[in-house]
Design a protein around this nucleic acid. Structure first.
Lengths: 167, 167
DNA sequence: GGTGAAAAAGGGCATTC
DNA sequence: GAATGCCCTTTTTCACC
């Protein structure tokens, strides 16, 4: 977890490719990037050690798991104090319906991304797990029509005018 | 891509484990789940074919890539017509700062999750890529204090009273 | 269980500061 | 001349049948 990880164009290209498909072999990676496979291995190991690569996870389709309806819940927690929001966060994270949780600035303290079986399940989730709790002052529910996870965070082209300081 | 994928507790446990760490070997997976490694292989292949498993991606730390500040932008696109929102969505997805994009019900049409280098970069992004566009009627920016991606979407325990219909 | 392939591990060579 | 990065080779492990 050294905090002085400097990234060159090769690192960026490796990250970009692996973000799209982490199952690529080092051979394929090497061919695409233009270095030796062992070099790719070294680079990836270094990025792992440096904390740039946090892990490798499975992308699963919630609809195929019986949760085709997704929504965002804006939640006000009042009073907004540490001893209340700690348990709140833990409780939300433990919900199987929860996909993501954001602590935000602004009038709504939290935004919760959930996936449920349908409208009835959504209603039940909101009523039983959120508004029923004393520290939850307000919940606003918005349905998700469509969602795009644009993983990159990286410039699509490896380096043209330079992506700026990334060390 | 058959749409009749029925999941049993073994499938759910496999998915749950691989969602936390997709680098697990089939041996480790088999030991954890309590079945043969070849069975795990078959199950995972079936889940891939069935579209339950969409892929395997790298989790990267945006802060280590020079984008330590994250925010959510609520965007109103007016008029909210298909010929305007198509290009808008494509444009947003092409931004290297964009991490996710949601199309929502409610007064705000889109929610964009972005990661930037700092407040100045955020201001520049909002002004140049959003409010400068004619179809963007309003942008509301909220900073992200903290974020938890609770990947699961699955019950934490494999099966106690039954996770309900998930086929 | 067996086979072929991929991932680690180790060492040599070049380049740089 | 010490260090770093790249590449090749070997060993080990894993995926797949």
């Amino acid at each position: 977890m050294s905090d002085s990880v400097v990234l060159d164009p090769v690192d960026l290209e490796i990250l970009r490719l692996l973000q799209n498909d982490a199952r690529m072999t080092y051979r394929e990676l090497a061919a695409a990037v233009g270095v030796a496979a062992s070099t790719c291995l070294d680079r990836v190991a270094r990025l792992r050690r440096g904390g740039v690569i946090l892990g490798q996870v499975l992308r699963v389709d919630p609809a195929r798991l019986g949760r085709p309806l997704e929504a965002l819940l804006s939640v006000q927690v009042r009073p907004h104090r540490a001893e209340l929001i700690g348990p709140f966060v833990e409780r939300v994270r433990a919900l199987p319906q929860a996909r993501a949780l954001f602590h935000l600035t602004g009038p709504d303290d939290y935004l919760v991304h959930v996936a449920v079986a349908g409208p009835a399940a959504l209603q039940r989730l909101v009523l039983e797990e959120f508004t029923a709790r004393r520290e939850v002052a307000r919940v606003e529910t918005r349905l998700i029509f469509g969602r795009w996870e644009c993983g990159p965070v990286l410039p699509p082209a490896p380096a043209e005018s330079g992506p700026g300081p990334v060390g």
